[in-house]
Design a protein around this nucleic acid. Structure first.
Lengths: 332, 332
DNA sequence: TTGAAAGCGCTAACAT
DNA sequence: ATGTTAGCGCTTTCAA
């Protein structure tokens, strides 16, 4: 593999010149002829700058880590798409690092970033972290942006507009005439889940309503729905805090012999392609996940260029209601 | 951040000694007392070896790239789990690189690996690559293992036992009494898809049967199923080459007013959690994806230690039939 | 048993 | 307008 030295020799210039030309350094003036010679030499030798040497010299690896609780959650894929958009544009690569439980993985992240393998981290919190564990994770010397999660005292987070999403779901159900609403929410430890719950409580204040605390997965949604169905005042409209949970909830309702949406309506927060392929399709409040990824990555990269990480909320574009077959006016 | 130099100074030894001790170099004899001093110093200073310097010196980055056509395909998550298992164990990290279409991305991979950012590549082929494009991709100076895909003339591939999976699906359907079978297969360009199709053709030889060529996604499955339903001799049992396509097929059948499994049976190759949450649940032939990931990663890492990459097929564990509600004896 | 020193391939400050 | 040179932080041969 050709090195800079070879290119320089081939072009009959010093390594310094070759380096500057190849890096498009504008501040240095070179004969357009020498420049051409260098470029041609590089081309001829198929020169690829050695990434490792560059990283050492510049103290930059050109990679960021994306830490997620679960790579199989489709939320991840959508966020990744956004992150990828901006990283590809800026020539960065992305490490994927799945961290679900704290104990060992805490070391993982420190090993990873402490070792200087990545320049910055984009972290999506797992339900299983409590604040202290998260704090340990983010206390590494490089920028860490919390995606759709926050940590008291930590600088750098980007949240979704959970309240708006919940409001949209509640409004949709109320508009159809539903009076008794339920929320199948996330675990209280997860702050996006907490925000959604607070929003829900505020909106249904006074009405008969019930909240189930559940995980993000389909089984969690099933279990919660079964509990809901056996409650004294059965809700007619159910909001789930994740698309996965909605699948579980739909399944449990159908298994219990209910017809959806005739007997019970279901609306999910988050939209994934699967929601369009169930029978009935699941009505969703789609959140701008890809944009979340894009904004998050941009924030992080700007930070590497000297900007400060903000604690902010992504409100534009707003959540979007996607009406499918799982919601209808209550039958009674 | 403390460096080796600091540790050495703190321990009152030279960098050379510190380095050897810290790396557990057995070939060098040091007073157990000096050794302890070094270890203590490292501990005290919370020394983390600089990954970039190490990578340059050793010409190794301690990372592999995982190239996939789509991070949102649940197949990916399962394979990743296996890869992760073995990489975490050996202290490696994993780059995720989504490459769907050839043109630009071809540069991506070369940039990535030509630059020496990773030590090896695990590549899952996209339908959209033809052999030439794939060949261009894999002709980089480091080991590339093709996962569930192969390329004539390329050394290094690990396939699944597609024929066994198809046989299992056909047998299941035949055992239930189905005579008219259909395959909703993958694109012919994808060699795993091709293998499945050949296996199917062999098995149904002589019987009335029909093959639809479709992509891996749910919509592809829908479209194919609609074509199937309007064909003169409608099949009673349908095999889809992916779990995603099965979702689409199921949806299309239900939308057309058919009852599954009463009017038509569906069995998918590959199992994902979603298949357990549709109504009815989808009968699947589960493939050992996580093991595929594990084996693939092991092969690759062994290769870095000097072994040769084989072209092999993962036959153990064999595919496993998971019977759910989408299959039953034909009604007529 | 330990230390000195030469690079890995590149960039950038400082000459010329 | 171009060249010299000093490292980035580490490993490892070779010498003491």
């Amino acid at each position: 593999m050709a090195q800079l030295r070879d290119v320089a020799k081939e072009a009959g210039v010093s390594m310094a010149v070759a380096s500057r030309v190849l890096n498009g350094d504008e501040t240095v003036r070179v004969t357009s002829e020498t420049k051409a010679r260098v470029l041609k030499a590089a081309q001829a030798l198929a020169y690829q700058p050695n990434h490792r040497a560059r990283a050492l010299r510049l103290s930059r690896t050109g990679a960021i880590a994306m830490v997620v609780p679960s790579a199989s959650n489709m939320i991840f894929a959508d966020i990744y798409a956004g992150v990828r958009d901006v990283c590809v544009g800026r020539g960065l690569s992305i490490f994927l690092c799945q961290i679900q439980r704290p104990a060992v993985p805490e070391r993982q992240l420190v090993d990873l970033v402490g070792a200087g393998q990545v320049d910055a981290v984009l972290l999506q919190r797992s339900d299983l972290f409590d604040d202290d564990q998260l704090a340990a994770l983010v206390s590494v010397g490089i920028p860490v942006l919390l995606v759709n999660s926050s940590l008291p005292g930590h600088q750098g987070s980007l949240a979704l507009d959970d309240a708006a999403a919940v409001a949209m779901a509640v409004e949709h159900l109320r508009g159809l005439g539903h009076q008794r609403l339920a929320l199948i929410g996330g675990l209280a430890t997860h702050d996006a889940a907490a925000r959604r719950r607070v929003a829900f409580d505020d909106l249904v204040h006074g009405d008969p309503s019930v909240v189930e605390e559940a995980g993000w997965e389909a089984t969690d949604g099933s279990v919660a729905m079964r509990r809901l169905l056996s409650s004294p005042v059965r809700p007619t409209g159910v909001i789930t805090a994740s698309a996965n949970a909605a699948l579980g909830a739909l399944h449990a309702a159908q298994e219990a012999g209910l017809r959806v949406p005739d007997d019970i309506s279901i609306v999910a927060i988050h939209d994934t392609w699967v929601c369009a392929f169930t029978t009935p399709g699941i009505t969703c409040v789609a959140m701008p996940l890809t944009q979340l990824g894009r904004t998050a990555a941009t924030l992080l990269l700007d930070c590497l260029d000297g900007a400060t990480l903000p604690n902010s909320t992504l409100t534009d574009p707003p959540p979007r209601l996607v009406v499918r077959g799982s919601t209808a006016p209550p039958s009674a």
